[in-house]
């Protein structure tokens, strides 16, 4: 049997090695002041929680692999598909002007559907209703590329979701999900990203869980990951049965978490670990 003092020795060594890791990070993390009534005093992008190598990868727009998706979707934007003989461009013209700010304000209320829709859903509504083309599957390269491309048109613009009016019950629902503990590990979003951001959980350096960089190029996956896939991943990590991507639960959560990062510049395509 392992002596409890040996365990203590291991714990000291482990704690010290974590401290070494932490001191290697830049301690100062710049953020933006949160509006009154917000949960954070300072809203900080996930960028600030990453290593200097990862940040450098995001900053160089040639080295940033996320731009491969932006370029692919720039071509897809002009491609005619579906029985209406239309491309995205047929209705929207140049994305650089028509899509500016669109991605920063998602999810947005849709009167016809009487619910909020996110960017992936909006793109597929366009495809099925206006182009009469097959909607793209969630997680397909085509849909993630186009989502990234449209979000990129808001690059540097502040996240600006609306949470009032018909959106408020969705906001409340998202908030409830955020603070609900899930899974065998019994953790809520708040357990890691509100109470423990800036600390290590095992090998992971926890951020505020902001969404301003999504879809994000994850070093782990070596591809762009859409937000709902990340949500799924978080729930899987706490050993819970994840909600389905594009479900009402995740949509409400997307809205609420976007509000937690209100005012942060859109960084899509960002690079995260």
């Amino acid at each position: 049997m392992l002596s409890r003092y040996i365990r203590l020795a291991v714990a000291i060594a482990a704690a010290a090695s974590v401290a070494t890791c932490a001191s290697a990070e830049e301690p100062e993390r710049k953020g933006i002041p949160a509006p009154p009534g917000h949960v954070f005093k300072t809203i900080i992008s996930g960028y600030q929680f990453r290593s200097k190598e990862t940040r450098a990868l995001q900053d160089d727009d040639l080295e940033n692999p996320g731009f491969l998706a932006v370029e692919r979707a720039a071509d897809a934007w002009k491609k005619v598909e579906g029985s209406e003989g239309k491309s995205c461009m047929s209705c929207h013209g140049e994305a650089e002007t028509s899509m500016k700010g669109v991605g920063a304000a998602m999810p947005k209320w849709d009167d016809k559907l009487a619910k909020p829709v996110n960017l992936e859903q909006r793109i597929n509504i366009c495809r099925s209703e206006h182009m009469k083309a097959e909607p793209w599957k969630f997680k397909s390269r085509e849909l993630t590329d186009m989502t990234t491309f449209v979000r990129y048109q808001s690059h540097g613009m502040p996240v600006a979701v609306k949470t009032d009016g018909p959106m408020s019950p969705w906001f409340e629902r998202g908030k409830q999900t955020y603070y609900t503990r899930y899974g065998q590990l019994d953790l809520a979003c708040a357990s890691c990203h509100e109470r423990n951001n800036g600390k290590f959980m095992r090998a992971d350096f926890l951020s505020q869980g902001q969404t301003n960089g999504f879809p994000t190029y994850r070093l782990r996956d070596q591809r762009l990951v859409p937000l709902h896939e990340r949500f799924e991943g978080c729930m899987f990590d706490v050993r819970a049965e994840p909600f389905k991507p594009l479900s009402d639960e995740f949509l409400a959560l997307e809205l609420y978490v976007a509000w937690r990062g209100i005012g942060l510049p859109v960084e899509t395509p960002s690079v995260r670990n």
Binding site: L8, A9, I12
Partner: peptide
């Protein structure tokens, strides 16, 4: 042989020194 608390600190600290070298 089980070690005592003082030895545990020494062992942990020693390991830290080793990794920092």
């Amino acid at each position: 042989k089980a070690i005592n608390r003082r030895q545990a600190f020494a062992l942990g600290g020693g390991f830290v020194m080793l990794t920092l070298m």
